[in-house]
Amino acid sequence: FSITQFVRNLGLEHLMDIFEREQITLRVLVEMGHKELKEIGINAYGHREKLIKGVERLI
């Protein structure tokens, strides 16, 4: 299971460039909250919320 699959499953594949540029893996994403996601350029609250909720389902 990769970050690419995870992001695609959430319908947020347009954010993949950010994850690749910042070298974010699923392991790193698990540790990130709204503040960190915003810092790397994910400005939409809804997108950040989707990512965080998606990660919570993985754990």
Rank of each mutant, 00 (worst) to 15 (best):
F1D: 10
F1Q: 10
S2R: 07
T4H: 14
T4C: 13
Q5F: 08
Q5D: 15
Q5W: 09
F6C: 04
V7M: 12
V7L: 15
V7R: 01
R8I: 11
R8T: 14
N9R: 13
N9T: 13
N9S: 15
L10N: 02
G11C: 07
E13D: 11
H14A: 10
L15G: 00
L15K: 00
M16G: 08
M16R: 07
M16V: 14
M16D: 05
M16C: 09
D17Q: 12
D17R: 11
I18C: 04
I18M: 05
I18E: 01
E20K: 11
Q23F: 08
I24K: 01
T25C: 05
L26H: 03
L26Y: 07
R27K: 14
R27G: 12
V28G: 11
V28N: 13
L29D: 01
V30D: 02
E31R: 15
M32K: 02
M32P: 01
M32E: 00
M32L: 08
M32R: 02
M32G: 01
G33M: 03
G33I: 04
H34W: 05
H34D: 05
H34Y: 04
K35L: 07
E36D: 08
E36A: 06
E36W: 06
L37W: 05
L37H: 02
L37Q: 02
K38P: 01
K38A: 10
E39S: 12
E39G: 10
E39A: 14
I40L: 11
I40E: 00
I42V: 11
N43A: 12
A44S: 15
A44D: 15
Y45T: 07
Y45V: 10
G46R: 15
G46K: 14
H47G: 03
H47K: 06
R48A: 05
R48K: 02
R48C: 08
R48D: 03
R48V: 06
E49A: 12
E49V: 14
K50N: 05
K50S: 09
L51Y: 01
L51D: 00
L51P: 00
L51M: 05
L51K: 01
I52M: 09
K53W: 10
K53T: 08
K53M: 10
G54E: 08
V55W: 06
V55D: 01
V55I: 15
E56H: 12
E56R: 15
E56M: 13
R57D: 12
L58K: 03
L58C: 08
L58W: 13
I59F: 13
I59E: 07
